[in-house]
Simulated assay, not measured.
Amino acid sequence: MFPSDPAVAELLTRGRIEVEGRLVDASNATLFCAISGAGEVAHCVYKPVSGERALWDFPDGTLAGREVGAYLVSEATGLHLVPPTVLRAGPFGPGMVQLWVDTKEGDDLVDVIGPDDVPKGWRRVLRAHDRFGEPAVLAHSDHPSIRLMAALDVVINNADRKGGHVLHGTDGNVYGVDHGICLHTEHKLRTVLWGWVGEPLPEDVLEMLGTLRAAMPALAESLAEHLTRAEIRALGARLDELERTAEFPTPGADYRAIPWPAF
């Protein structure tokens, strides 16, 4: 089942969830599940609120709602950059349920590679050395959907855009996942997608922001279930600022701008 399938929303909301395994690299409880109902079967990710790790800067029990909030913002742009995501009851209590995205094997969109191995057209983000002391480069694809995702991350204030959170689906579309620490009132943008620093926003990004602007009144009502009024106002303020500057922001020197680990 692809994210664009019209039956996805109903399946995620009402389907029967059966836990099949756990994604052990995740910092919070992240369960790989089968979900079925009304003759449909798919896989999903289920993150119960009870399995969230307490953070000093994000209120306890809010990460699942922020995942849904990021999905709602993405949907308001009309670009579907986040897989269908709902907040519902599950085997271990309420939590975030998101459609699993099958990816193209060997078709990474973000990578750490040798300086001479960076694919043509890719954007270089950071020069470093690997664990053997050899030169390495953090780089990402120049895919238009990644550029849109980078702008969306600015608006939702994504504090954890790792390379492994950018997926190239088997349906050909690009998706961002793992948005539990976003939509904070304070500036917290940490991302591997810094490849367009200081460049003017292209027409497709400006169009995305305009669509989001028009959707803000209705979106604010939908977000009220998951965010505080201050967080919704901050979302609008970031949208205002990005439209005003009309360029990709530059990371500040007073904070860590790339998540660790980067994948």
Rank of each mutant, 00 (worst) to 15 (best):
Y46L: 09
E203F: 05
P144D: 02
A246N: 07
G133Q: 04
F132P: 00
P217G: 02
V112E: 07
V155R: 14
L193N: 01
S27M: 00
L23Q: 12
T62P: 10
T30K: 00
L242H: 05
W100I: 13
G164K: 12
H143S: 02
L11R: 10
H143V: 01
R127N: 14
A54L: 07
G210V: 01
E105M: 01
G90Q: 13
P115K: 11
H43C: 10
R53G: 08
W56G: 09
K188C: 05
T30L: 00
F32W: 09
F132W: 06
A26G: 00
I113D: 06
K104E: 05
E186K: 11
K162Q: 01
A150I: 05
E231H: 04
E225A: 13
R14S: 14
T13M: 09
H80S: 15
T250R: 09
G236E: 06
L227F: 11
G51W: 12
C182H: 05
A230S: 14
D116V: 07
L227W: 07
D102T: 13
E18Q: 15
V97M: 14
L239K: 13
V197T: 12
V154G: 07
L99S: 12
G236W: 08
T228C: 09
T170N: 04
A38D: 05
T170D: 03
A224S: 14
L183P: 04
H226R: 03
H165R: 11
A218R: 10
P83G: 01
V112P: 08
P94C: 11
G39Y: 12
A220M: 00
R161I: 06
D142S: 14
L72Q: 08
R229V: 05
E199G: 01
R88K: 07
L87T: 02
D160A: 07
L212P: 06
R16V: 15
T30F: 00
A34L: 10
K104P: 00
S141K: 05
V112F: 07
Y71D: 00
D108N: 15
G37F: 15
L11Q: 10
I258Y: 09
P249K: 08
G169F: 08
D107H: 15
I156E: 05
L201W: 02
T191R: 04
H226Y: 15
L227H: 08
P83S: 00
I232G: 07
D5E: 05
H165I: 10
L148D: 04
S222I: 04
A237V: 12
A218E: 07
R124G: 06
S141Y: 06
S74C: 07
A26Q: 00
A136S: 14
G15K: 11
W122E: 03
M216W: 02
V118Y: 08
L193E: 00
G21R: 08
A215I: 06
R123N: 13
I156Y: 14
D108T: 15
S145Y: 06
P3G: 02
A54Q: 04
P115A: 06
H140T: 12
G210P: 01
I146G: 01
F92T: 13
D60A: 11
L201F: 01
S36M: 10
G39I: 10
H129E: 12
P261A: 02
E243A: 09
A234M: 13
E134G: 03
E52V: 05
D171W: 09
M149D: 04
L242T: 03
